Simulated scan of single mutants.
Amino acid sequence: MTSISLNLRSVEQRIAGIATQCGRAPQEITLLAVSKTKPESDITAAYEAGQRCFGENYVQEGVSKIAALSHLADIDWHFIGPLQSNKSRLVAENFAWCHTIDRLKLAQRLSAQRPEHLPPLNVLIQINISDESSKSGIREEALNALAAEISQLPRLTLRGIMAIPAPEPDHRQQLIVCQRMAALYHSLANDYPQVDTLSLGMSDDLDAAITAGSTLVRVGSAIFGARQYPSSSS
């Protein structure tokens, strides 16, 4: 087994262990392998080990990988980085998911630019749950209004919400924040039957996120090793 496949098994076992401890089925939780800055060979190694969901933060880097790995037809490509309006067409045309919707204008562009031959783009609304000025996302109280607008767009499917909480070493405090996100998610799911995704949790807060009810966790370096940086972040 390669180091990536061994790492992947370790992460999967960690997720399963946390889920079992809090009375959840491990199958309820999707692992998104964050492959930003990693070469196509690493993605292929993870794919060969059974991984199918991959997350990219940089539009052009992600599009290049999608083209190079198009022979792996069942990869589920997620865009998880901040998205500028002038890059929206590339996401609409190439990805299956966009996790970082934080304004109606962006959602409208993605819907208009989504090709008719593809299924609707799955989208998540990003919540700035820790109210950090350095992070994208809407405030909690703006969720219902934005969700109502997005749900009317014909080429998008609203699937849920996403957040990147502020770093917090204390598990109890992590859990409080994650439970706030879970409450927003359940409220949204009550209003929209297609909502089934709470994208919450990375390596440092995986335990709290899964305990609170996350359905999708984002893990990168624990699978692929230390992050490398591309020459361009676009």
Results as ranks from 00 to 15, higher is better:
Ile161Val: 15
Ala145Val: 01
Asn122Asp: 01
Ile164His: 09
His171Val: 14
Met162Ile: 11
Arg139Leu: 12
Pro167Asp: 08
Arg139Pro: 03
Ser151Val: 13
Gln152Met: 10
Pro165Gly: 03
Tyr185Leu: 02
Arg159Asn: 07
Ser199Tyr: 12
Gln179Pro: 05
Ile127Tyr: 06
Ile164Met: 15
Met181Thr: 01
Met162His: 13
Leu175Ala: 04
Gly201Ser: 03
Asp191Met: 14
Ile125Gly: 00
Ala163Cys: 14
Glu149Asp: 13
Ser151Phe: 14
Pro154Arg: 06
Leu198Trp: 00
Glu141Cys: 10
Tyr192Asp: 09
Leu198Thr: 01
Ala142Phe: 02
Ala145Phe: 00
Gln126Val: 02
Leu200Arg: 05
Asn190Lys: 13
Leu156Pro: 14
Gln179Thr: 06
Glu141Ser: 11
Ile127Trp: 00
Leu156Asp: 10
Pro165Gln: 01
Val195Ser: 05
Glu141Ala: 08
Leu153Gly: 07
Gly160Leu: 13
Ala145Gln: 04
Arg139Phe: 11
His171Thr: 10
Asp170Ile: 15
Ile138Gln: 13
Ala183Lys: 07
Leu184Pro: 02
Ile150Met: 05
Ile125Tyr: 04
Leu124Val: 01
Thr197Tyr: 04
Pro154Ala: 05
Ala163Lys: 06
Gly201Tyr: 03
Glu168Cys: 14
Leu188Cys: 12
Gln152Asn: 08
Ile176Met: 08
Pro119His: 02
Gln194His: 11
Val195Arg: 00
Tyr185Ala: 01
Ala148Met: 07
Gln179Ile: 01
Pro169Trp: 11
Pro165Asn: 01
Ala145Thr: 06
Gly160Arg: 10
Lys135Thr: 06
Ala182Thr: 08
Pro169Arg: 01
Leu200Gly: 00
Ala145Tyr: 01
Glu132Ile: 05
Asn144His: 11
Ser199Met: 03
Arg159Gln: 13
Asn190Met: 13
Ala166Cys: 12
Ser136Trp: 14
Ala163Leu: 13
Ser134Thr: 15
Asn144Cys: 09
Gly201Leu: 02
Asp191Tyr: 12
Ile138Lys: 13
Arg172Tyr: 03
His171Ile: 14
Arg155Lys: 01
Gln173Glu: 10
Ile129Val: 04
Glu140Val: 13
Asn144Trp: 11
Gly201Met: 05
Pro193Tyr: 07
Pro154Gly: 04
Ile125Arg: 06
Asp191Gln: 15
Leu143Lys: 05
Glu149Met: 03
Gln126Pro: 06
Pro120Glu: 09
Glu140Trp: 09
Glu168Gly: 09
Ser136Val: 15
Lys135Val: 13
Ile138Thr: 14
Ile176Arg: 08
Leu188Lys: 05
Leu156Met: 07
Leu121Cys: 08
Gln174Lys: 08
Ile161His: 11
Ala148Thr: 11
Glu141Asp: 12
Leu156Tyr: 04
Asn122Thr: 00
Ala145Trp: 02
Cys178Arg: 05
Ile129Asp: 00
Val177Ala: 05
Ala145Ser: 00
Leu118Ile: 06
Gln194Pro: 05
Asn144Ser: 14
Ala163Phe: 11
Ala166Trp: 12
Gln194Gly: 12
Ser187Ala: 14
Ile125Leu: 08
Gln174Glu: 12
Arg159Pro: 07
Ile127Phe: 08
Ile138Ser: 12
Pro119Lys: 07
Leu143Trp: 04
Ile129Glu: 00
Leu156His: 04
